[in-house]
Every structure is written in structure tokens, then in C-alpha cells.
Nucleic acid binder design. Structure first.
Lengths: 122, 122
DNA sequence: ATATCACTTAGAGTTTACTTTAAGTCAATA
DNA sequence: TATTGACTTAAAGTAAACTCTAAGTGATAT
């Protein structure tokens, strides 16, 4: 699979895919004789994982570290678990903050819908 | 209330509070003869709103626009509602993406806990 | 054959949201 | 009196994550 197809499939730009590769999040992607990247199914799965985690706001540096540990095999399992737990905690806190803001927006919109033009911000 | 107290109460730095003011998200905060900011209850409420929305990832530019409309009074109600709805949509999409990542992390951690050392990323 | 298009690289530039710096005022304490 | 600490300003600097530019290769369409 060529870079533009992968980009299209995931809604990323080719620049971003090359950037992720440079940063060590994916690949190195193997290239044909022409020097053109050819993404395997394994590569695709990894991009899927990265995209999911990036969409949730997990940092490149964390993903890089995690994926490098993954390459390291079974002896890295303990550390891998630790950093996943750490990231889950960070994510949970963000989720809660976002849920609060979401509820607040809902409440406010509801007031507008009911034509309650209060002077309060919230 | 002085800037350092406000900063402490909200877990922001004084730099950030002055930055928000510069950007027109809050204030202008009235100052005593000495030129020192004195935050009113109204200011505090606004900071609370801004903090909540920023924690959820809403952009400074949006908050600025919304709060300026707010200053504009009742004639801005329609537009205010519109941009709240727009932001809610963006927020909902982020929330869903984050929930998905959260579930995925949970699942993965669960596998580690069960000592299922699979070779798959996810 | 020439133009267009997808790909390649290294490296510079951009955006957002702060954060730090430098230089200063003012009040209180050692 | 000297220094410590909180405040002030304008402006420069930083970090993260892209995003774009310039210069080039190679295959296909007119």
C-alpha cells in the first residue's frame, strides 16, 4: 500500500505519515527499488493504533517509547504495562474534565433554547 | 482578590492569567492606585468558565469570540448559541475518540494483567 | 517530447498556548 | 538601609505537532 492510500484511509497527510516514521512511531517502512514506501498490514495496524491514541491526545513521545518497548519483546512487558496505566490515568482525568465541559455546554445551550437569556456566563 | 491568590485557587500561573487578559478572555481587570490587579467575583466566575473550557481543549480564539459576544448583550444571543452548538459538536467527537482510546487501553492493560503476552499491538 | 503527477529528501516554517526574560515599582521586614 | 517578595510591563523564547518548501526522480498521459 502506497503512502497516499494510507493517508487517505486514515485521514492523515503524507507529511504526517513520514513525520511519524521519522519520529520512530512507525516503520521504518520498507521501500521498493524506486525508493517508494510500501506499507504492510502490520504497518497499517500500527498506524491505526497510533492514530487512535493521538486522537485521544496521547503524546508522540509516549507512543514512541511504548512502541520501542514493544520492539524489545517480552522482557519489556512490565514497563509497558506501567506506562499504559500511567497514560490511562492521564486520559481518565482529561475525559472527566471534558465531560464536565460538555455537560456545561449542554446546560447552556438548553437555556438558550428555552429563551432564558440570563446575564450569567454559566 | 490578588492575582497570586486567583492563580493558586485555579491552579494557573499568574503569567497565564495575565496572558488570558491580554488575549481578551477575561477583564480588563480593574487595578488599584498601585496598578495592582484586583479580581472581582465576576472576574472569578469568568476565569472558572474559561478554565473549564480550556481543560476540555476549547480554543482560546473560540473563547475570546464567545466572551466578546457575551459583552455585546442580548442581540448576540443567536450567534452565541450557534457557536456553542458548534463547539459542543467538536467536543463530542473528541470525547468519543478519547473514550475509544480509553477502552483500548483498558483492554490492553487487562491482557497484561492476565499475563496474556500476545505479540499483537492491540 | 513535454507536461503532469506521485513519490523522494532535508530542513525551514507555522500554530497554539503558554512561559520566560529584562527591567522596573513599591511595601514590608532584618 | 538593604534586601526580599509581590506586583507591573513589553517582548522574546519555548514545546509539541505538524506542515511546507525546494529540489529532485521516475512513470504515465497528451
Amino acid at each position: 500500500m502506497q503512502i497516499s492510500e494510507v493517508a487517505k484511509e486514515f485521514g492523515l497527510t503524507t507529511d504526517t505519515l513520514r513525520y511519524y516514521e521519522r519520529e520512530g512511531l512507525i516503520g521504518p517502512i520498507s521501500k521498493g527499488e524506486n525508493g517508494i514506501r510500501n506499507y504492510t498490514e502490520e504497518d497499517i495496524k500500527r498506524i491505526q493504533f497510533v492514530k487512535c491514541m493521538r486522537a485521544a491526545g496521547l503524546e508522540i513521545s509516549f507512543l514512541k517509547r511504548y512502541l520501542q518497548l514493544f520492539e524489545g519483546g517480552d522482557k519489556t512487558v512490565k514497563e509497558r504495562r506501567e506506562i499504559l496505566v500511567e497514560q490511562r490515568k492521564i486520559l481518565k482525568e482529561k475525559l472527566d474534565a471534558m465531560q464536565e465541559a460538555y455537560n456545561r455546554l449542554n446546560y447552556k445551550i438548553d437555556l438558550y433554547d428555552k429563551n432564558i437569556l440570563d446575564k450569567k456566563l454559566m
